[in-house]
């Protein structure tokens, strides 16, 4: 499928607005963690990369998408609602008494593969599914989206070594490299760079992309099903936490919370201005 980049960009803004609205309404949710991943998710779900069927979420041959950074659940729920996995009105009930999902990812929501919220889990489970698929000679791919702060978890590197050793070339990891954790920038906490070298040393094919360029992400994943390398592939996607809403970016204070009152209105205006500038 040839993706029309400008319509994909519009989709990104649409999703950002939906994420912001649902979190403002719920007065919770990891808005900025979601925003940094929007363009990656648009490339995967709307750019023709992932194979999925909203009518049949358990379709055996679907690609598996594992959101390992489960705090970005508002984004995945928005994408799944928009793609038709469930009624979009559920987004209005995010983290509400009568809602079907809350702040962290929940596996019984249609289209969600795994409960996630504790970090360092989804990536390993994704590798296990990829190994099982290889044993069964299945053709589907396993994609997983990690946070960069998640890479502090030791289990990430246990899995990274394992996946490369077992030639899981049906596994694609994307690291949302937004440089910001809960309290500070990663390079101030414990430096994660050189990130590419770390993954390469574990035996992975590594590509570094602009995580807000849908075109770059699509190009990096263009031939992902016919790679000749036996190695698993990791995309380190440089992003900005809070991307699209300038007043929420690059400040750790916005981790894990939704803007309220005047801040909420400012965030809406910021998003609108950014869209008009494009």
């Amino acid at each position: 499928m040839t993706a029309d980049i400008s319509s994909l960009k519009n989709k990104s803004y649409e999703l950002r607005k939906m994420v912001l609205d649902m979190c403002i309404k719920a007065e919770t949710g990891h808005v900025t963690s979601s925003l940094s991943s929007v363009d990656i998710m648009v490339a995967l779900y709307y750019g023709g990369i992932l194979k999925y069927d909203p009518e049949n979420p358990h379709w055996a041959d679907r690609d598996r998408f594992i959101l390992s950074k489960g705090q970005a659940s508002p984004l995945l729920y928005t994408v799944l609602a928009d793609a038709g996995f469930f009624d979009p009105s559920e987004l209005d009930r995010f983290a509400q008494r009568d809602g079907i999902f809350g702040v962290h990812l929940q596996w019984d929501v249609p289209g969600v593969e795994l409960t996630s919220g504790s970090l360092g889990h989804g990536f390993g489970v994704a590798a296990g599914i990829a190994l099982g698929a290889m044993m069964d000679k299945d053709l589907f791919m396993v994609f997983t989206l990690l946070g960069d702060g998640e890479c502090y978890e030791g289990s990430i590197w246990e899995t990274a070594m394992f996946a490369a050793h077992n030639n899981l070339n049906n596994l694609v990891a994307i690291v949302d490299r937004n440089y910001l954790c809960v309290t500070d920038f990663t390079e101030n906490i414990v430096a994660l760079e050189p990130m590419e070298d770390k993954w390469r040393a574990c035996g992975w094919n590594v590509k570094r992309v602009n995580g807000h360029s849908i075109k770059d992400i699509l190009e990096a994943l263009a031939f992902v099903r016919s790679r000749r390398s036996h190695k698993p592939l990791v995309l380190i996607a440089d992003t900005v936490k809070g991307e699209g809403i300038d007043c929420l970016t690059n400040d750790p204070i916005w981790h894990g919370q939704a803007p309220k009152g005047k801040d909420a209105e400012a965030a809406r205006v910021c998003l609108l201005m950014r869209q008009n500038d494009e």
Binding site: E113, G120, H121, F123, G124, V125, A126, A127, G128, I129, A130, L131, G132, A133, M135, D136, G154, S155, E158, T159, F162
Partner: peptide, 16 residues
């Protein structure tokens, strides 16, 4: 790598 053992096992179990 026991953490990875459980994670890989979980993925395999999800695959049946």
């Amino acid at each position: 790598a026991e953490q990875n053992a459980v994670l890989i096992g979980s993925g395999l179990a999800l695959k049946g």
